[in-house]
Design a protein around this nucleic acid. Structure first.
Lengths: 344, 344
DNA sequence: CTGAAAGCGCTAACAT
DNA sequence: ATGTTAGCGCTTTCAG
């Protein structure tokens, strides 16, 4: 219970040198004599010295910290983004503060304010489900703190964004179902205010159009991706007459829940309804049949976002010039969509 | 791009009063004149003032921040603990820093050091998979920073811990399988250095013993809970002769993976092998058959841990007196274990 | 009710 | 290679 903090003053006076030398030595400034440095390091260790980040930050006017603002944590996608970001920021010597908003706009605003007050040097963010606007990010812009958005982004107002080509993915998924001879293809998606969903939706529509299949708005269900919503959507499908012969569902978890309810009601997957999900979540291979999906390379998104931010902060790059970075993505075909036996 | 930070000096000189008054007003000190206070608040708003946390922390020698140290983030259990903790800490006016170690001891040590350097006022922690010892928490003890452990804990050295009764849960799970007329009950678990696994293991052994079933060490598989491990374990089971007639698997994800591989190889669940998992994860009801499991009330653990920590910090409670807090838990029976048709 | 002033621990410009 | 010193922005004691 040695409660008093050790400061550079303590070290300096114990060694009969100046605090300036101690400060320099501790930062490994090459200008300090090797032997002095060693003495200082040893004593610091022995006395249990730790830098006071507050004093340092107060003095330096920067924190060497990046803020990460995400809608949720319990998602494999977000976790792999996180892993990518951490890899890069750690290498570059930045601390990371993680804030999650539980898909709530209110919390997102509070988190943004909190990161701002913590004076992060930069921000990497993905929007919450019901985020209305980006006003809460204006403070960063005003203070010159760079913000990079990923995945759920707002393209207007020339923000720097890292995304996949959701339009193309929506198109691919739909095209794949069409190739399985599906004609009545349902689409379950979420708030069309979010780019990820609206872009996939456009891809879905265009794929239909390009294949001469009329778009039917009764075949589009919009919900909040919750378990309850999945069940309700499935019930809604069951009431349709005729039934759709395929469903492109914008989220693997939702697809899994839907599939369960459909199967419980005697629908065969993929024979009656072929299904394509989105994300390549772990559950894809745990449910039956295994879920066809779009692979979403979170770790790459994280690395790219972080790399751009760090380069910008270090002055070796400038995100002002880069508006949109697209990460590759691909369709993974599994049993849930294979209505036609694959041609060998 | 108004880059300069507004300080209390700016407000003071603009209003021709002292910084002391501004400082007091901003903290809503009742001693300040109402009208002065209003003027100060208005101007602060208008000038875009924000407190400098560093200056404040440097001065106050505390941060009003709680550190949360968890082994991973992409787990429903951890996320519900987090929700519980956040609820309490937010109400109590504490900030929360979340650090996750990706189940790595090395990262856990680094994270502990990081939280220490960030000078959190208290810590809530759950150990990583391969954590060797608790030396990295000693610094907190030395500085009088309270640490509360939850779930994966070390009971020795009278730490304050919040846990479920893993022994009882292991016993219950096994007893349930025995009641389904199972005799050769396999147990898949993980590092027995972690209390959660060793306690469940003891419960498993005692339930067998109490029912006159000899313990067979060949029926215990220890692995790292990964997908690969799940597949390997299932393959190992398939080679057994005779096959076990039940499996108590210490983790739902692992159970789901195992079940998939077993089913792929023609094993019927629960007819051939009855299965009980652990955690009540979302996948339990998405796999087929739905997984019997132990319900693990994360949100309660989080709330209790945080409440105790906060009370300790506010001086209205003292965790020194409380060593172990047990949270209720229960068996949830689903199809995967129902070998006997339920008696009505 | 308000003000003056000291000091929290550190960094960096300047001086030696 | 080392030392002196002036703040960074805030809180709080003491004095009016």
């Amino acid at each position: 219970m040695k409660d008093k903090e050790v400061t550079i003053y303590d070290i300096a006076s114990a060694l009969n040198i100046s605090i300036a030398t101690v400060s320099r030595a501790l930062k490994n400034d090459p200008v300090v004599n090797k032997r002095t440095k060693k003495k200082i390091f040893d004593l610091a260790d022995q006395m249990g010295y730790r830098v006071n980040q507050f004093a340092r930050n107060l003095r330096n006017q920067r924190t060497n910290t990046v803020g990460m603002l995400v809608p949720k944590l319990n998602s494999n996608f977000i976790n792999s983004v996180l892993a990518g970001v951490e890899k890069v920021t750690t290498e570059a010597g930045y601390d990371l503060i993680i804030a999650h908003s539980s898909e709530s706009y209110i919390k997102e605003v509070a988190n943004a304010k909190n990161l701002f007050d913590k004076r992060v040097d930069g921000v990497i963010a993905s929007l919450s489900f019901d985020t209305k606007n980006l006003d809460h990010f204006k403070v960063f812009k005003d203070k010159g703190v760079p913000v990079i958005f990923f995945d759920r982004v707002e393209q207007e107002g020339n923000n720097t964004v890292v995304i996949i080509d959701n339009y193309k993915c929506g198109y691919l998924a739909t095209q794949h179902l069409i190739e399985q001879d599906c004609k009545r293809i349902l689409h379950i998606t979420s708030s069309l205010k979010r780019n990820v969903y609206s872009d996939r939706f456009k891809g879905y529509q265009d794929a239909l159009f390009d294949n001469g299949i009329p778009y039917d708005e009764n075949l589009v269900i919009i919900n909040d991706l919750s378990e309850r919503a999945g069940i309700e959507s499935a019930m809604q499908i069951l009431k349709m007459d005729p039934l759709p012969d395929a469903a492109f569902i914008t989220n693997d978890f939702l697809a899994a829940v839907c599939m369960r309810t459909l199967k419980e009601n005697g629908i065969r997957i993929p024979e009656d309804i072929a299904i394509v999900g989105f994300n390549n979540d772990t559950i894809c291979t745990l449910v039956e049949p295994a879920l066809t999906t779009i692979n979403y390379p979170g770790i790459d998104m994280g690395e790219v976002a972080a790399r751009n931010l760090v380069n910008h902060l270090k002055g070796t790059g400038n995100i002002q010039n880069t508006n949109t970075i697209i990460i590759r993505s691909n369709l993974i075909i599994r049993k849930s969509s294979l209505k036609k036996k694959p041609v060998i």
